[in-house]
Simulated scan of single mutants.
Amino acid sequence: MRIKPIFFFGIVGAIVGSAVQLSSIDCPKSPLLEQGCAVWKAPGAIASGSTTGFVYGTIAVLGFGLLRRKYGSQEEFDWRILTWSSIGVLGLFTLYPPTITATQNVASRAARKVKTTILRGKVSQDVVRQAIGHAEGNFTLSGERTQLYYGHNDPGNGKRNFGYCSNQSRTETVKGADRSCDRYINQYKARAEKELIAAGIGLEEPDAYINTLDLANQAHPRTFVRFPHKLAEAKQKGLKDIDAITWARVQSFGKDGVEATGLIGICRREKRPVSDAECVAQDQQRRAKAIQRVLEHQAKR
Rank of each mutant, 00 (worst) to 15 (best):
Q218I: 04
K175M: 02
I87S: 11
G72P: 04
S252D: 08
E34F: 06
R269M: 06
R160D: 14
V20E: 07
G91N: 03
R145L: 03
T51P: 10
K240G: 05
I118E: 13
G143T: 05
T171H: 05
R109S: 14
K122A: 15
I245T: 10
S24V: 02
G10L: 00
D154Q: 11
A192L: 00
A232W: 04
I15S: 13
S124A: 08
L231I: 02
N186C: 09
I210G: 01
A38Q: 10
G156Y: 08
A135R: 07
Q147C: 06
P97Q: 11
L32P: 15
P98D: 03
E259H: 10
A281P: 05
A111V: 10
R222I: 14
D126A: 01
R80Y: 07
L148E: 10
R286A: 04
N161Q: 02
K230W: 13
G156S: 07
I3G: 02
A216G: 09
D256G: 13
R160K: 15
R2E: 14
F9K: 05
G63I: 08
I185C: 05
K159M: 01
F7T: 11
T51H: 02
K4N: 01
V294D: 00
L82V: 14
N161I: 10
E259W: 13
F7N: 06
Y209D: 02
D26V: 07
F54W: 03
R287I: 12
R269G: 01
D256Q: 13
A190C: 02
H297C: 13
V39Q: 01
P228K: 12
A277R: 09
T103P: 03
Q130D: 07
R287K: 11
Q168Y: 00
I25K: 08
L203P: 01
T146G: 02
K237E: 13
P43I: 05
E233S: 15
R249Y: 09
K255N: 12
Q74H: 14
G72H: 00
E296A: 07
V128Q: 09
Y150E: 01
A42I: 11
A42L: 05
Q284T: 04
Q130M: 10
P43A: 03
A281G: 06
Q292T: 12
L33F: 04
G13P: 04
M1L: 09
